[in-house]
């Protein structure tokens, strides 16, 4: 049996041994900023570092000016666009962009809208009009829908969604108008820094071992059992009872006041707002916690997270029979090194 507690002493975890050299590089880059018209616009600055003395630059995000000199207010890369100078932070809070596939948690139910925590500076909003309601068909949202908002999504519920638009103050508006989006079930959430997530075409994957992963661009990752039915409209007992419970409570029928096509469709669509988990076997639960630890390891070692790497990390983790060993720093580093090595071998 492995030890129950491991205590390490803090060490300087810098793999780059030539610290001195990189310092020199930076100075060179600095001098290049200062001569005007330099085309080198990818360099790293630290907070409080002088970016340029030239007053003609317009100051963008991540900068501040003192006595006509521009300083960086964040650690990141300098970006120059025409006369606009800004610094893109390397790490920081997630900033929503239109089209991002994200995972969020409801924090508040309000007038015709939900507030959703997506790890942004401000909570995102999800309008009642931007969700699919039970009833299956697109229709105007009636007053009774408004009164029943907690039956669809309540505080604490997790959902995946897409950023529909971003307001000028940075607040995001979400929508779930696709069968891919909606309430999340059958799994666990874990959070990693959003800077580790690479925006991709596809963010939801089925992994080996009957486990699915949704990698939210905001750094929220959902690991769950792969659903057996590929969204075939089947009526099961749990949704039936969930619906009848709701119906008896509020006397509310989904799609009231509108014409629904079939009874079947009504009932199946309640499934998307169900809180009940399916049967999940112990082996799948074990696999989920293994994936959980692999992703944690990647985040501890600051490795960008993609589906391919998760699979490689999972394979690498198999040398530890016991999942409990994967939380040790040493094991985490070995797994990440393994991922990097196998990427090199493939020539990615």
């Amino acid at each position: 049996m492995s030890s129950l507690l491991s205590i390490t002493r803090p060490t300087k975890r810098d793999s780059r041994s030539n610290d001195y050299d990189s310092d020199v590089d930076m100075k060179d880059a600095m001098s290049e900023y200062q001569d005007e018209g330099s085309k080198d616009n990818t360099s790293v600055v630290t907070p409080g570092e002088l970016v340029t003395e030239d007053p003609t630059w317009m100051k963008g995000h991540g900068t501040y000016s003192l006595e006509n000199q521009t300083y960086s207010s964040v650690a990141g890369n300098v970006l120059r666009l025409n006369r606009l100078l800004s610094v893109i932070p390397i790490r920081g809070r997630y900033e929503a962009e239109t089209g991002d596939y994200i995972i969020g948690r409801i924090t508040e139910v309000g007038q015709k809208r939900w507030k959703v925590d997506i790890g942004c500076k401000q909570d995102a909003i999800l309008m009642l009009g931007s969700v699919n309601l039970p009833g299956g068909i697109l229709r105007r949202k009636s007053e009774s829908d408004e009164l029943q908002m907690r039956n669809f999504l309540k505080e604490g519920d997790l959902l995946n969604a897409e950023v529909q638009s971003v307001y000028s103050n940075g607040q995001a508006a979400l929508h779930t108008r696709s069968l891919r989006y909606g309430k999340l079930r059958n799994g666990v959430l874990l959070k990693v820094p959003s800077s580790l997530i690479i925006r991709q075409k596809n963010h939801s994957w089925n992994l080996p071992g009957n486990v699915s992963v949704i990698i939210g661009v905001n750094g929220f990752i959902w690991l769950s059992k792969t659903s057996s039915t590929s969204t075939a409209p089947s009526v099961n007992a749990s949704t039936n009872s969930a619906q009848s419970a709701l119906a008896s409570k509020g006397g509310y029928k989904p799609g009231e006041g509108s014409v629904s096509i079939t009874r079947l469709e009504e009932e199946s669509s309640w499934e998307i707002y169900s809180d009940k988990n399916d049967e999940i076997s112990a082996s799948i639960r074990g696999t989920i916690s293994r994936y959980h630890n692999v992703i944690k390891a990647m985040s501890a070692c600051e490795l960008g997270i993609t589906e391919k790497r998760i699979c490689m990390g999972y394979d690498a983790s198999m040398m530890y029979a016991d999942t409990s060993m994967l939380i040790e720093r040493e094991a985490q580093e070995i797994i990440c090194q393994d991922i990097i090595d196998s990427e090199k071998m493939r020539g990615d």
Partner: peptide, 27 residues
Amino acid sequence: MLLSPAERSYIYDSLCQKDPIRPDGRT
């Protein structure tokens, strides 16, 4: 910290089993 009912029951069921599985795989 607030959990959704589905998360809560998933974690509870995992911990409740005869051979419990903690979310982070610890013994």
